[in-house]
Design a protein around this nucleic acid. Structure first.
Lengths: 242, 242
DNA sequence: CGCCTTTTTGAGAAATATCAATCGCAGTGG
DNA sequence: CCACTGCGATTGATATTTCTCAAAAAGGCG
């Protein structure tokens, strides 16, 4: 399957800034491939030296780092429209790995074309930089969580954040968000152990702020959950889609 | 005091990539000011809507975020040559604050000139993006620390990282690095309490891997400290200086 | 049904936080 | 010179949080 950028359904979502035809055409010309990968595939490897730049077209993924003895930290989750691999494609080697959480589709922008892209269309270069900055903002927020929020607050903040990001992508249907995270993923993202994550999650659920089962998340009171988590950031929108 | 980019002493350090005259001239033309600020000054405020882009010319600074009730997380430390404020200058408002740790000097690049910069010199735009990605990499590494390393490892990793970054800037003299961090800063950066930071630091010191007193850090065994911290990242060098 | 992954539970151990002083030292005013 | 003040470092005692280990329960799937 190959989706040409001008007819990309993502581009029409409210989450994204509408672009002119010419710009979309240039983006399309940069795109070298459209990949389909199974859940669990690692498409950027730690230490990999020739990673490409990707836009996640469909599905969920995450970036992670790990220590020598196997301890793993998830750095950020990626949703459709997110750019993945900017660092990895800019540097000589990647300092992180990226794995598909669900089956995914990726638009590929070859790293070699990056500089040419900067020369050819400065607006797009600006947008790439913007998206890189947004990616850092996501990690910043995560670091705040892991460093300063308690276990319950961390989980609440993560759910809020994902929900707020998923909504303008049209991923929330009738109040239900399909969340492909296992409790292990949540623990890995929040710097918690699996067991503690499970117990804390149970406690939160029992307070009635949200429901989560079988991969379906329903937030009964987003305002209240945000307040509990002290999570007050809205997702920046509209944003560019490369 | 005003330092024109072509005669910038920083630019000659081994940490930085040497640039052509023309490029340096353009950078110089972008620079609108050279500020001198006292230690403790906050030069980017959380929520600020019109932050400029800065290059730290001299001194140390840090970026931070905080929760409503005052809990504070330091996101990253900035050393000379580092770009600060890319997110803040790209977005409508800043999601973090930035404060001078020591007396500092900043080169100012007005946010308004950013897009023009992208049009005028794609190589520089590429470098800005590169520096933004490096900034994210620093936060990634911090998040790994806070999420997965124990207190001792966190401190060791932080010291290693700062030392490895300071060295190519010529800030390490006869094995001694002047470290302007208070234990409270270390605690804020690592997601630890002040008391625990103090006790852990004392324990580490007693193991003889390093010495730290009166703001002077001497690492006796960088290899050993790195191994203990499981910190194996070298600072990327050479890198662009904007 | 049997096998695998994920979730859940219980119990005890370890790490880290909090509270409350005290100490050391540099600057400051008398 | 000395008392006084303020900030950062240090210490001891105690309270919480979070982790680890071990095992059982619950689903999903061929």
């Amino acid at each position: 399957m190959y989706v040409p950028c001008p007819s990309c359904p993502l581009r029409r979502k409210p989450a994204f800034r509408q672009k002119g035809e010419e710009e979309v055409a240039v983006i399309n010309s940069m795109k070298s491939d459209h990949l389909t990968l199974e859940a669990g595939s690692e498409f950027i490897h730690p230490e990999q030296s020739d990673a490409e730049l990707y836009t996640l077209f469909a599905g969920w993924a995450f970036r992670y780092k790990e220590l020598g003895d196997g301890r793993r930290q998830i750095l950020s989750f990626a949703l459709p429209g997110d750019l993945i691999g900017l660092q990895a494609s800019l540097f000589e080697k990647s300092f992180y790995g990226a794995i598909a959480l669900t089956d995914i589709q990726l638009c590929v922008i070859p790293r070699r074309r990056m500089l040419r892209l900067f020369e050819r269309m400065p607006e797009i270069a600006y947008d790439v930089t913007w998206l890189g900055a947004r990616s850092e903002a996501l990690v910043d927020e995560n670091l705040l969580s892991v460093g300063r929020r308690g276990a319950g607050e961390r989980i609440a903040a993560l759910l809020c954040s994902l929900y707020k990001r998923a909504e303008p992508l049209g991923l929330v249907k009738e109040g239900v968000l399909e969340l492909p995270l296992t409790q292990q993923h949540i623990a890995d993202a929040l710097g918690l152990s699996l067991v503690h994550t499970n117990k804390t999650l149970a406690k939160l659920r029992s307070q009635g702020l949200f429901t989560i089962s079988g991969g379906h998340l329903v937030i009964r009171n987003l305002r209240g959950l945000s307040r509990f988590a002290q999570h007050f950031e809205e997702d920046l929108a509209p944003r560019p889609l490369i």
